[in-house]
Amino acid sequence: MDTEALLAEIRAAVLDGEPSLVKSLTEKALEAGLPALTIVSEGLTEGIRSVGVEFQKGSYFLPDLVRGAQSMEIGLEVLQPLLTGAGEEMPTHARVVLGTVHGDLHSIGKNIVAAMLKASGFAVDDLGVNVPVEVFVEKVRETEAGFLGLSALLTTTVHQQEAVIKALEAAGLRSKVKVLLGGAPIDQDWADRVGADGFAPDAARAVEVARELAGIR
């Protein structure tokens, strides 16, 4: 099988959410001599991007999204030691600190965003739910993360997103981190009003926005 056909199969297996098939195809691609980074960028990443497109079209749903992310992660697991061993860096685009704001216990959307970001090569520090303002600020300072993702599902907790942004400003960290907002009551107007850098209505779009802000194709 030629290498382009192999990459196409990897993309299709991620799109179909077939983790074990992705694993075997990734191993096969390595045996065929494909560079690990090529498998990541032209196989796995393109596959998970297609999953996001299908989700936004309404033909894929939450289970498909999670399964796609799992498939990509398995492929990355196969490649990671080889990439490290060869002195190549894993294509971790940026470090993301993520959490649901104080007073809000909702985790589903935030967890799926975390899984999708990880599958797309981002390093994620998930702080969980009901995270106090100062914990977000401290984690951003400690990790020097390039992104901070703030989730809020309740109209009564969305103001915590604004509080975190103000606390970042007060701590002198605002210019060093891009703040992304998500959650059912959130929209672009709100993100603009509180001075966030981006907003995403779903996990697939969150990855796209993070990639755009990170300057990744």
């Binding site: 959410g17 939450l62 289970p63 999670v66 399964r67 992310a69 799992q70 985790s107 589903i108 967890n111 799926i112 899984a115």
Partner: peptide, 14 residues
């Protein structure tokens, strides 16, 4: 399913 899906347990959730 709201617990199982984010944990990646798709078959179990279904």
């Amino acid at each position: 399913p709201a617990d199982l899906l984010p944990m990646g347990k798709i078959d179990e959730a279904r």
